[in-house]
Amino acid sequence: MRIYHLMIFLLISNTSFASVDIERQYTKLIEELRCMVCQNQNLAESEAPLAVDMKEKIRDMLEAGKTEKEIKSFLSERYSSYILYDPPVNMQNILLWLGPFIFIMFLGYFLLRRYIK
């Protein structure tokens, strides 16, 4: 009987470990995905029916063992990259990601050359 209890205990603690991890991934994901029908809100903030459905789907997928990356590509294949608040690093976004770097080089060169002895 005690072993039985212990087994149940282990079972519960096991799932709860897994669920803590899923919970963390879930929270992160719904903050980084856009609610398609809202005015610039992420899924976490939104209570729109579509957002609620999507959150459910994301939770299901996480519980089915899907990774964050798989879920993101699953959704962006269907809803376009517009759904990702984290714009993918690709050719069309190259200026977005490199822009700040180029700019600071340019401005730094311009100002330091002009004013520094």
Binding site: M36, D53, R78
Partner: peptide, 12 residues
């Protein structure tokens, strides 16, 4: 359930 619609990227 809305599964097919999700696959279609339906949002409105």
């Amino acid at each position: 359930i809305g599964d097919l619609s999700l696959d279609l990227g339906v949002y409105g």
